[in-house]
Amino acid sequence: MALLEVKDLKVRVEEREILHGLTLTVNEGEVHAIMGPNGSGKSTLSHVIAGKPGYEVTDGQILFKGEDLLEMAPEERAAKGVFLAFQYPVEIPGVATMNFLRTALNAQRKARGESEYSTPDFLKKVREVSKSLNIPQDMLKRGVNVGFSGGEKKRNEVLQMALFEPSLCILDEMDSGLDIDALRIAADGVNALRSPKRAMVVITHYQRLLNYIVPDFVHVMSKGRVVKSGGKELALELEESGYTQFEDAA
């Protein structure tokens, strides 16, 4: 059984159809890159999978571990193992990052019928993970993403990914706003989380990110459809020739 099956998905936003029948299958352990120009529907796909309000699914289905994902509330999806690393992580003033991490982690564990983490176990885990991501403890005391640099925000996303141990990670334009060093740190963090039990969907404009997070599969999206799929070499090809060749294919 595939981890994620998107079948002929059609999605509207305010009367305008954005996805016109998208199909995508992701198995455990695989890393898929989704590439495509602005407005091709990449972010819409990630939002629909995560359950962001404002999108109307008019046709098709999404199965996650064989279950109908579209029937689940977004927080249920999170508890079941769907994680979205945001392109622009929001700031939450006054809510310490550490507190946020614990509240969210315990909410997910509770939804799964698991016991809450004890404070020492939790702290130990956070310290371990944040150290490997080069996140200073001081940052965890600050408000969620408040005053964080672009790199810090993305590392905070990776930190949550490591803590929540999702089975599906969707990385939405993780490279946007990052310099090369920050990108490397974030990508190293992601690579450390690759596992045979976990799948990743990496959404990006540029080949650059895929030098660091090397995908198993690359899909090219244009105008709300996947127009070409291939191996990692497809990304390099795109870097050479650009997206225009696919405009007509769509």
Partner: peptide, 22 residues
């Protein structure tokens, strides 16, 4: 902000409570 919290597993009400307490 609400969706960010909800994507991390909080319910709508938990998310509002968290943001307001902040």
């Amino acid at each position: 902000v609400l969706f960010y919290c909800i994507q991390r597993g909080l319910s709508q009400e938990e998310a509002v409570g968290l943001v307001v307490n902040g």
